[in-house]
Amino acid sequence: MTVYVKFGYTLLGLLIVLNWGFLMGATFRKIGARVAGRYGIPFYQPWLNLLKNISTRTTITHGVMYYIGPVFRLTGGVGLFLFMPMVFTGDPAGLWTNYSFEGDLILILYFQVFGMLGMALGAGQGGHPYSAMGIARGLAQHAAVELPLTLAFLSIAIQYDTFSVYKIVEAQQGGMMNWVLFTNPFAAVTIILAMLGAMGHSPFNLVKAPNEILIGPATEFEGTYLGFMQSAGSILHVMEAVLFMNLVFGGATSWIELIVKTFLIYFWSVFVGMVFPRFKIEQSVTWFFKVPLLLGFLAIIIYSF
């Protein structure tokens, strides 16, 4: 197996993730529409939106960082993908494990913030006060989410004595009862709760709330940039779900399993988001600093001693 074959498979995987992200997004919008009592968008709408966006004729610029913002965001998503084992095949250097390596959990934690920071730069240069406001809120909330999430990750790392996602997945194989969900319930519950914040659905989506502020960081982005951001968002959504699947729900042994599991994981945030209004930023920070943080600490304490 050469480097090129591996690279080819990585690209293929990225394509699958991107398309699955679009399809999943459309599916959830359809589910939401169904609860409201309507049909909702067609399944193929996200692809059309992407096409339309990149075919926009006007391009405006606010400066270099404005260009780079969406690229950073895409990099965040792609970075998450690159170092994330997608399908567990038993072979640590398998085709779908991407470039997973010992210690990639830390890198993944970093990549989660990376996209947001890139957005912050781009949106900041966009110059719209709402962008700045949205990104400030986003970063504040992200910090609040990251704290319990990191604690839970740490707890899992301590539990399996490794920072490699691949190894964590490997350790969970052999039946449902080996999943972190059951072996480390505190960390799992922490992740499940913090996940709501990471997925960016209601009640933790003040960042891009159209009512409270315009549309947050994306206010000034249009055309191709917006297409980029949407693709990045789709990839990020899938990858976040894959991350939680790998850490808590035993990973996936095939693409089908991955799709089913990510769908269900994502569904959880939609399930909550559909029926709850959104918190204000200080309220959501307070919320994360209460139960999830406490559980995170508990998870650490239990496995540290």
């Binding site: 169904r34 609860v35 409201a36 049909y39 399930f271 559909m274 029926v275």
Partner: peptide, 9 residues
């Protein structure tokens, strides 16, 4: 509210 999901649009 999710009970609405089984109803037709």
């Amino acid at each position: 509210a999710w009970s609405k999901i089984v109803k037709d649009p």
